[in-house]
């Protein structure tokens, strides 16, 4: 493993991705606003995307970029549905955060 200065190796990208993923996870666990929690999920997805593309380049495989393409589509769909759910919830209970929605307890 080298840390050459002329060009960043794949490992650099992977480490960046790891940090971003951890930050996303931290945010998801700490924040209470459902919208911000969603954004943190997006952060984690992007971290994974970086990994895909970086390893795809390392292995000279188009599969990495294709996976990112599909992740983008799924993320878009997920956001649409997720936001719709949030809209419904907040319309019923204005100002609600993730901790308020706890009817499904045992």
């Amino acid at each position: 493993m080298t840390f050459a200065v002329d060009a960043p190796t794949t490992d650099w990208y992977l480490m960046l991705s790891a940090v971003l993923f951890s930050l996303g996870a931290l945010g998801l666990l700490v924040r209470r606003n459902p919208l911000v929690m969603f954004m943190c999920v997006e952060l984690m997805l992007n971290a994974v995307n970086i990994t895909f593309v970086a390893i795809g380049r390392e292995l000279k495989d188009v599969g990495g970029q294709l996976a990112v393409f599909f992740v983008l589509v799924v993320a878009a769909a997920e956001v649409v549905v997720g936001l719709a759910i949030i809209v419904t919830i907040i319309r019923r209970r204005p100002g609600a955060n993730a901790d308020d929605i706890s009817v499904l307890k045992g």
Partner: peptide, 23 residues
């Protein structure tokens, strides 16, 4: 994740792809 990259990361660099080459 860091330990993956730093210690076992080398194992990820396997052979180049033949089914879907990028170049």
């Amino acid at each position: 994740l860091m330990s993956v990259v730093l210690s076992v990361g080398d194992k990820l660099t396997g052979a180049d792809s033949v089914t879907g080459p990028l170049d």
